[in-house]
Simulated assay, not measured.
Amino acid sequence: MAKLAATLPPIRYRRTPPSFLKRLTHPFIAPFKEVLGGPNLEHCDHRRVDCGVVAVEFYLPASYFGGGSKFPESVDLENNPTPQIAYNDRTGHDILRLGVSNWKYGRPRLEPTRFLPIPQDPYVIVTTFWQLERVKNGLCLEVGNMAMLEQYLMDDYYAHLESEGGQNWKIRAETQAELEPRGWDQESIDEQIAIQLFDPPKRYEPLVFNSAGWLRHIWAPRQNYPKALNYTCALTPQFLLTVSFDLTEMTGASLEHWWSPLVEDSEILMQGVKLHYKDLPQP
């Protein structure tokens, strides 16, 4: 396996070097504050998947548990590749996974609860998917057009939540049907509905990795803990490439304990994603 840190180009979002004082005190503070875990950047599978008009290159860290799955070396996007069923996909796209890895972020070595007779679950488990997603409804996107991609993602999340059969549609219908016969007034019913609704991502952040434009967004449907940190680009007019850092919260710990390391590690891995186009894709 390749060592990611040794093979990546200079990283735009590399962690800021600590001050002299922090470097001096780090050996004493780290056991109390430094979150343990993260992707195994020292042992990565260097993957290059031929997708016809474009080859997708990325680094797949060794999984902390599970693993052993086989992923395609090539995909024929022109001949309707067989999609996989993914129950935790963002919004129900037909997808094809190119790689999966997982890791965790856990308590510092001298975190107080380590000395209590209670389960020592990690703060969060991260499962990362590199996946192709077929653009819905026969639409064609313009590769590199970030405004068009953002509009597609916004419309897709809205349709996923609000269209007939969507999560918010079901919440409204079921809550109305349950509370109206019990004599609730409409204002109270609407209040009960409002606290149950799922929210789409609030912000799409444009980023560039290896000359390719990506949109980063947080999928946090109930605004408690994020469900996923996603990076999406238009790979071809008919296919998206999404790198999704799916999150399984384990302890209810504050985001300040693990969110910053997650974002930093995700940016390091994104610097290893390269798109090699053979010809400019056409709609």
Rank of each mutant, 00 (worst) to 15 (best):
V49R: 11
I85S: 10
Y59K: 09
V56Q: 04
D76L: 13
G92V: 04
L77Y: 06
L60S: 05
S63N: 13
F65Q: 10
E57R: 14
L96Q: 14
C51R: 03
H93D: 15
G92C: 04
D89C: 04
N79D: 00
Y64A: 10
R48E: 15
G52P: 03
G52K: 05
P81A: 05
D76M: 11
K70Q: 00
N88S: 10
F71R: 15
P83F: 05
P61H: 05
V75C: 12
D76A: 14
Y87M: 11
V49D: 05
T91M: 00
G67C: 05
R48I: 15
V56A: 13
Y59G: 10
V49Q: 08
V54D: 01
P81V: 04
H93G: 08
D50H: 05
R48H: 15
R90C: 11
A86Q: 06
S74T: 03
P83T: 09
A55L: 06
N80I: 10
S69P: 07
G66V: 15
F58N: 05
F65D: 09
R90V: 08
T91S: 00
F65K: 10
A62Q: 11
R90I: 10
G99Y: 13
I85Q: 09
V49E: 06
R48Q: 15
R90L: 14
G68I: 01
G67F: 02
A86W: 08
D89R: 02
E57N: 12
I85E: 08
P61A: 04
G66Q: 12
S63Y: 11
G67S: 06
V56Y: 02
N79E: 02
N79R: 01
R97Q: 01
A55C: 13
Y64D: 12
R48M: 15
Y59A: 13
Y87H: 11
N80L: 14
E78H: 03
E78S: 09
P72M: 02
Q84T: 11
A55D: 14
G52E: 02
C51Q: 03
R97T: 01
Y59D: 15
V54C: 06
A86E: 09
A62H: 06
A55P: 06
T82S: 15
D76W: 09
R90T: 09
T82D: 14
G67T: 07
L60H: 06
A62V: 03
H93W: 13
V49N: 06
S74Q: 05
V56D: 05
I95H: 01
F71V: 10
Y64Q: 10
